[in-house]
Amino acid sequence: MNDKKFNFKHIHLGSLLKARTQELLLKSASLCAFFGCETQDLEKMYDSQSLDMELIVKWSKVLGYDFFRIYSTHLILYAPQVTQVRTIETKPKNPLEISFRKNIYTKEIIDFILEMLSTGEKSKGQIIEEYGIPNSTLHKWLDKYPN
């Protein structure tokens, strides 16, 4: 789960669950009892690219890891920034409802970006263009996290 080379673009949740289960040395019998399922059901979950949200919540609890964070990171990195689209029915936005993008970058995202820079996989310009990270933010990260 702490692998800096994790590919946030292509998420296969089942393989992540299996890896974390092995990391914690959890037995299938214990997990089956927790989920109220058979071993083959557990294997189906490990083979699945995605799962129902309620199952992800249960997995997050039993494995002590927020698997939703992976999807949030994917959205931050790969979903285009949405500007407010107004329709005739839309009322002007209340100033208190304005959301800010400041501080949305988790340590995992910063590590992911800096790893691409340090290995030469992407240049500063490519990162700024592809992920919409401001130039000043990228330079602050480089100063703050020199390794």
Rank of each mutant, 00 (worst) to 15 (best):
D41S: 11
E43S: 06
E43Q: 09
E43G: 08
E43V: 13
E43Y: 12
E43A: 14
K44D: 05
K44P: 00
K44C: 08
K44Y: 02
K44F: 01
M45F: 01
M45N: 12
M45G: 00
M45R: 00
M45E: 02
Y46D: 00
Y46P: 00
Y46V: 01
D47G: 01
D47H: 11
D47R: 13
D47C: 07
D47Q: 12
S48A: 15
S48V: 03
Q49C: 05
Q49N: 12
S50T: 14
L51W: 02
L51G: 04
D52L: 01
M53Q: 10
M53T: 09
M53G: 05
E54F: 13
E54P: 00
E54T: 04
E54H: 05
E54I: 05
E54V: 00
L55V: 04
L55N: 09
L55Q: 09
I56V: 14
I56H: 03
I56F: 06
I56W: 02
V57T: 04
V57E: 15
V57C: 05
V57S: 05
K58F: 12
K58Y: 12
K58C: 04
K58D: 13
K58H: 10
W59D: 02
W59R: 04
W59C: 04
S60N: 02
S60Y: 09
S60I: 00
K61G: 00
K61L: 15
V62E: 10
V62Y: 12
V62D: 10
V62I: 14
V62T: 08
V62G: 09
V62L: 14
L63Q: 13
G64K: 15
G64Q: 09
Y65T: 05
Y65V: 06
Y65P: 00
Y65C: 06
Y65R: 12
D66K: 04
D66G: 02
D66C: 08
D66S: 04
F67S: 05
F67M: 10
F67G: 02
F67D: 02
F67C: 05
F68I: 07
F68C: 02
R69W: 01
R69F: 01
R69H: 06
R69P: 00
I70A: 02
I70N: 01
I70E: 00
I70R: 01
Y71K: 11
Y71W: 14
Y71N: 07
Y71M: 08
Y71T: 03
Y71S: 03
Y71I: 12
S72G: 11
S72W: 10
S72C: 13
S72R: 13
S72I: 09
S72F: 10
S72Y: 14
T73N: 15
T73V: 15
T73Q: 09
H74I: 13
H74C: 10
H74W: 03
H74Q: 08
H74Y: 12
L75H: 14
L75A: 15
L75R: 15
L75D: 13
L75M: 10
I76D: 07
I76C: 01
I76K: 13
I76Q: 11
I76L: 15
I76H: 14
L77Q: 07
L77C: 06
L77T: 11
L77N: 02
L77F: 07
L77Y: 10
